[in-house]
Design a protein around this nucleic acid. Structure first.
Lengths: 227, 227
DNA sequence: AGGTGATCGTTACTGCGAGTAACAGATAAA
DNA sequence: TTTATCTGTTACTCGCAGTAACGATCACCT
């Protein structure tokens, strides 16, 4: 891990700076997308950041990578908010409800960005990245819970993807046509998720509603692990 | 509704033919996408159909419309298969299971096309069309069931979107990494959906497992209503 | 028979947006 | 002072969506 070829101070001194600028460009992209919609061109984003295209391309190999970074940013945002809500001490059901509420709040703050989030893989890899990131976290969460309760841990991954897909789909629907209030949407959504999980638990003889917070079924929040 | 301007035989005689050719082009698009992946260009599709681009553009205003048509085609396919499974006479739970199995079978037959299906809206309207079509059908189905059972019919639409999103997300996950067998995936998926629905029903005092087929909670399959 | 209105199809273009080349200045480590 | 790496620019290439313009065919109509 020590310097490989040359690596004198002239090489290394920029590294922190690079990370900061990259982050700055991601935020500019989010701003541009919030304003211009998810089809904002690279030139638009560069303009929003106050630079010209080639500068952006020094930080991101192509548009997909930029989009992926935006996806990761959004995923961190939701994950952070939802996890703090879900891990708060309360009954299991209340925690689900709180998590869903936090989710919809976050969506409402950046509608355009989240519409982008729901446009995932062609065959290549546009920005499923964000969703996968969330799904991975959820998989661990569910897996731990299932193990703790003695259920079938194989269910963790499919269910995690189910919850993510369900969330993006309902979220998108709610963002596009606001036919119901946020709280109503949150209610329907959390009922659905709660019943799915607790019903499955009940079937293996576990009463989920007795599960309390801080129950060790989940690891603490970690600050956006590097990709 | 009688001829508006001129409409002699020379105008009308093509109408059936147009519909047939359009369908033919949709199938060619499906083939091209199955082969070349979801990023197949319009030229690729035209080549697959044995024509040149402008011909395609006589039938579809732009690429989105073509994609939307592919989405609609796929939606019809799944809807057809899933509905016949779901409407077959059996216990409610078995019907859910059968529906999910039919769904995964259909996915497996056209993986590429369905990966395309899950790449929906920018802000414009790429091919959310197909998903919306399914969601609409599901909304009616659930709405009728809820009304029949005296539940809150407002839940129908969010839940329909939840089921669609859940299905595409898990479907995509399963197509990309086949980490579990089809039947296992089907099991996890149908458990999830079944518990979500029956749990919600139970909460309003209804025992869903007593619901039998042909219960009038659903209208018969209709042959792909024109858009 | 001969004109007409619609299709069939082609090749060759425009135009936009992603990504690149090439070049010039700044700054701090060596 | 040289050197490595950043800063940034303008002006290009190139691929693909979509269009223009043209000619052929064939059944209907008069």
């Amino acid at each position: 891990m020590t310097p490989h070829v040359k690596r004198d101070g002239r090489t290394t001194r920029w590294e922190q700076h690079r990370a900061e600028r990259r982050e700055e460009f991601v935020l500019a992209a989010v701003r541009a997308i919030d304003t211009l919609g998810p089809d904002a061109s690279v030139a638009d984003i560069a303009a929003e950041a106050g630079v010209s295209k080639p500068v952006l391309y020094r930080y991101f190999a192509d548009k997909n990578e930029l989009h992926a970074a935006v996806g990761a940013w959004a995923a961190d945002l939701v994950l952070g908010r939802v996890l703090t809500a879900v891990l708060a001490p309360a009954s299991a059901r209340d925690r689900v409800t709180a998590g869903v509420a936090a989710y919809l709040d976050t969506l409402a703050a950046h509608p355009q960005a989240f519409l982008l989030l729901s446009r995932p893989a062609g065959g290549t890899d546009p920005l499923a990245a964000g969703k996968d990131q969330i799904a991975a976290k959820l998989t661990r969460l569910l897996g731990d819970a299932l193990r703790h309760l003695g259920g079938d841990t194989g269910a963790a991954e499919p269910w995690a993807h189910a919850v993510v897909g369900l969330g993006t789909s309902v979220g998108q629907w709610w963002l596009e046509r606001h036919t119901v209030s946020r709280s109503a949407a949150a209610g329907y959504l959390s009922d659905f998720i709660w019943h799915a999980l607790s019903g499955a638990a009940a079937e293996s003889g576990v009463d989920l509603s007795r599960l309390d917070a801080g129950d060790g079924e989940v690891s603490p929040i970690r600050p956006a692990e590097p990709r």
